[in-house]
Structures are given as C-alpha cells and as structure tokens.
C-alpha cells in the first residue's frame, strides 16, 4: 500500500498543508482533509455533478481528479463563493430567493458550476445556460427554480434589475 504524501492545496484563497495517499480524490481531500464538506458526493463516477468545484476557474468533477493533481492550482468550492459571512454570492442569493433548492444536496455543485460559468460568460443566454445546467443532476426541484435562479443571478451579475 502506498502511503500518504505531503501536499499543498490552495482552496478559496487559503493554504492547506495536508498529507494524502495518491488515490485520494480531490473531493475526498477537500471534505476530509480540508474539512470543506460543502462539496458533496452523489455518485463518484462523474455523472451527478454534486462534487463540482472550480480548478483554476474551470468547473471539474472533483470525484474524477486526484488531490495530488491539484497541487499548485487554485481550487474554489461552494464555501469560497460568498465574499464574507454577511453577504452571499449573487448565485447563492438567487437560489435562496427563488427557492432553487430543496434538500440542498445537489446545490453546492450547481452553485459552483453556475458561478464559475457566469463569471466567465456574463452575457450567457438561457439556451446556453440550460446546456450548462444539464451537466448536473437534481432529484428534488425538477430544475424549474434552478433555471429561474440562474437567470436571476445572471441579471444580477450584469447589474441589471
């Protein structure tokens, strides 16, 4: 059995010095070694998207990446979306106001996916956003309010009313 190797991760702007076996996925390292349990695991084979995080700004399945691969990258998780404990990220705010979540298990994955996408593509339109949203599964909401929340967040991020 291979043993743990030291690893430095930058997550949400914080530095984590951890030691992991190479087989530790990024998702498990975030959850267990960094204590960032907002990133969820719903399938561990890449389909559900509950584990979606941003690595160097790009959405990835953290169940399909080993933690050691994230060395020297910048990782962003749901815990890193809000600017502080008073304010929410516009996507978080929109999900709250538009009832975009029920059980909340899929929610971190959707929030990270959308926040990452809208920050890069502020002018994205509905069809394009639907396509992006089809990356992840939600079992509770039927996606109706996820879409509404996303459109609302897009407007807010563009500074529209």
């Amino acid at each position: 059995m291979s043993s743990a190797i030291p690893l430095r991760l930058y997550v949400n702007g914080d530095r984590y010095e951890i030691a992991v076996e190479p087989r530790r996925t990024l998702a498990d390292a975030l959850r267990e070694d960094c204590g960032l349990t907002g990133t969820h695991l719903g399938c561990e084979h890449g389909v559900c998207g509950a584990c979606t995080v941003l690595v160097d700004g790009q959405p990835v399945r953290s169940c399909l990446m080993f933690a050691v691969q994230a060395e020297d990258t910048s990782v962003r998780t749901v815990e890193g979306l809000a600017p502080d404990e008073e304010r929410l990220h516009p996507v978080q705010q929109a999900f709250w106001e538009n009832h975009g979540l029920q059980c909340g298990f899929c929610t971190p994955g959707f929030l990270v996916l959308i926040a990452g996408y809208l920050e890069e593509h502020p002018d994205a339109e509905e069809a394009e956003l639907r396509e992006v949203l089809s990356s992840n599964l939600c079992r509770c909401t039927g996606y109706q309010n996820i879409l509404t929340s996303t459109m609302c967040a897009a407007r807010a991020m563009r500074g529209e009313p």
Partner: peptide, 9 residues
C-alpha cells in the same frame, strides 16, 4: 462529448 465539467478535463 459529455458535459462541460467533463470537457474541461
């Protein structure tokens, strides 16, 4: 090919 988060990797 898959979805955006698959395609980024």
């Amino acid at each position: 090919v898959g979805h955006l988060p698959i395609r980024t990797r």
